[in-house]
Every structure is written in C-alpha cells, then in structure tokens.
C-alpha cells in the first residue's frame, strides 16, 4: 500500500479517535449546565471527564500535526480556507480548556457560573463545527487550480453543512449522556440514561436526514455505488440499535455501539473522500488528493516509522489512564478533587 494511503488512513483514525473520545467530553460539557444544578453535582459531572479531556483533545492536535507533516497542501488550504470557522473553534477550545482548570479555584458563584458557561459554549461550538467542516469536505468548497480556497465563510454554510453540524452535535451529546450514565453513581446514572434515550431519537432522525441529503449534495453514488457496502450500512444499524441498549440499561454496550456508530459514520465520510482530501466545487481536477497534496516519500517514510513505534505506546498509556479512573464518580469528597 502506498505511504500516501497509509497516512490518509492514519489521519482518518486520529480524527475518528478524536470524535469518539472528545465526542463524549464535548457532550458532557454541553449537558453540564442542564443536568447538574448544585455545585457538587457540577463538580461530579466535570470530574467524570477531568482526567481525560486534555488527552482526548491531543488526538485533534496530532491529527492537525499529521496533516501538516503528510499533506501540507491539505493543511494549508483547509486552515486558511476555513479561517473564520477555525478561529471560532480555537477560541472555543481555549476558553473551554481554561474553564476546566479555573472554575473551581474560586468560590464566587459568578466566577463559577461564568466558567460553566465557558465550558458549555466551548463544547457546543466545536461539536457543531466539526459536522459543518466534514460536510464541506465531501460536498466540496471553492478551490482553484492553484489549490487556493477562493470562497469565504458563508460558502461553508449551507443546509447540508448545518445538518452535518447537527449530526455531530446530537451524536456527541448522546455519546456524552451515555458516558455520564456509566461514570456517575446511581441516582445520576439513571437520570442521564433516560436523557440519553430521549436524545438518541432526534440523533437518529437528523442522521437519516443527513444521509438522504448526502445523496443529493455529494458524489456518494458514484464513489460507493448503489450498494454502499458494509461500513455505511453498519453506521446506520449501530446507530439504530444504540437506543435498545440504553433502554435495556446495558450502558457499557451502549457506549461501545455508539462509538462504533461514530467510527462507521466518520469512516464513510473518509471513504467518500478517498483519495481526495478536499473536494473542489469548481472543478474536480482542482480537488486536493493524497497524491497532489502530499509530502515527499522520504518524509512519509520517516513519519511512518515514528508512528509505528509510538502510536501503540500512546494507546497503551492512554488506555491505562482510563483503567485507573474506571470507578464511578460519587459525591464523596475524594471524588471531588480539582
């Protein structure tokens, strides 16, 4: 397999890992002001993701770095092209990250409420923007023959891309609700489970609407054919079955199945893209691909060796950190560290 393809897959894996992991902590951040009212409750909710959110976010940082290293033109065109959207995302991630560390370090209720809303908006904005961005990846954006983005912010906003934003938003919220029901103790676990079940329905409806629109706005039919294959079908089936697992209170399974739904859905997007990385709406010949946007073979080889050595190590210790914090969070003071 060409190294270009390997790097396309690796970047896809990084984004998918990011969506599954940060998916739940963004969801938790969005749910925070609504499900947790007292300060102890809020601290409990935040502490479910406290040890993890930063490590989850590094999946994105690594994906960005990998794009830069392996496909510099993708990185350059995308980040300069989606400028205002990316700026909003950065502001959101900045205030959110600081909020987690700052909110409990002062007792003033105004201070705490300020940072809680910072967590909310800081989680809401990326959750929407990721869907908007990926919808635009496959739908296409105005890119000229020099690989330069020639549109503006409003070119990124369409019914299709907004629907994409709602897909990630609702998907992440469901992911967050299931995670909370796994990580909080009994009374809260049940509350968030019921919430997850309620939110799963709109998630399914939005997703189906997005799938239908995808057939209108992208070249999915040419790429995947009439029979889309196992992965897209798997995406729908897993998403549909999540509700059953939540209802049966098999929450561990619900989390795994919802994660699989994210995995399959995002894989479908990447499958539609391949071998392109950014589709041009002006001329198919202007699309950036894993070949015309890539670094040289030497760089790809070096980076492949480094990835082979270090990715398993990272996965091992990140997995271990989840194991260390496997217990449910209670309102016992020992669980309320910050």
């Amino acid at each position: 397999m060409a190294l270009n393809t390997i790097w396309f897959i690796l970047i896809a894996v990084l984004f998918i890992g990011y969506f599954i992991l940060e998916g739940f902590d963004l969801g938790v951040g969005i749910l925070l002001p609504f499900i947790a009212k007292t300060d102890t409750e809020r601290r409990m909710v935040i502490n479910t993701i406290g040890p993890h959110w930063d490590g989850n976010e590094v999946w994105l940082i690594t994906a960005g770095g990998a794009m830069f290293a392996a496909f510099p033109d993708w990185y350059a065109t995308l980040f300069s092209g989606f400028y205002i959207a990316l700026f909003l995302m950065l502001i959101a991630l900045i205030i959110r990250g600081v909020a987690f560390e700052f909110r409990s370090k002062d007792d003033n209720p105004v201070w705490r409420s300020f940072w809680d809303w910072a967590i909310f908006f800081g989680s809401l904005i990326p959750a929407i923007l990721w869907g908007v961005a990926f919808a635009n990846f496959i739908r296409g954006v105005p890119i000229n023959a020099d690989f330069r983005f020639v549109g503006n912010f409003w070119d990124l906003i369409s019914i299709y891309s907004v629907l994409g934003g709602l897909v990630t938003l609702s998907g992440f919220i469901v992911q967050g609700a299931i995670f909370l029901s796994l990580k909080l103790d009994n009374k809260f676990s049940e509350k968030t489970r019921v919430l997850g079940l309620k939110l799963w329905m709109p998630n399914v409806v939005i997703m189906l609407a997005f799938v239908v629109q995808t057939y209108f706005f992208t070249d999915i039919l040419q790429v995947l054919g009439v029979n889309p294959g196992v992965i897209p079908v798997g995406a729908i089936l897993t998403l549909l079955s999540v509700g059953w697992f939540i209802q049966q209170k098999r929450l561990g399974w619900a989390f795994i199945i919802n994660s699989l739904a994210i995995l399959f859905s995002a894989s479908t997007i990447f499958r539609i893209l391949y071998p392109r990385v950014l589709v041009s709406s002006l001329d198919p010949a202007n699309s950036l691909t894993i070949f015309n946007a890539s670094s040289g073979p030497y760089t790809l080889k070096v980076m492949t060796i480094i990835a082979i050595i270090f990715v398993p190590i990272v996965l091992a210790y990140q997995g271990w950190s989840y194991w260390v914090f496997r217990n449910r969070i209670t309102s016992h003071p020992k669980d309320l560290h910050y």
Binding site: D54, V58, S321
Partner: peptide, 16 residues
C-alpha cells in the same frame, strides 16, 4: 506531528 505524538499525549494524560 512528532511533538504532538511524543510530548502532548505524555504531558496531558499524565497530568490528568
């Protein structure tokens, strides 16, 4: 990219 893979994961996960 190497910085993210070798350093950012290490510092953020172990800080948690």
């Amino acid at each position: 990219a190497i910085e993210a893979l070798l350093a950012f994961f290490l510092e953020s996960i172990f800080l948690g």
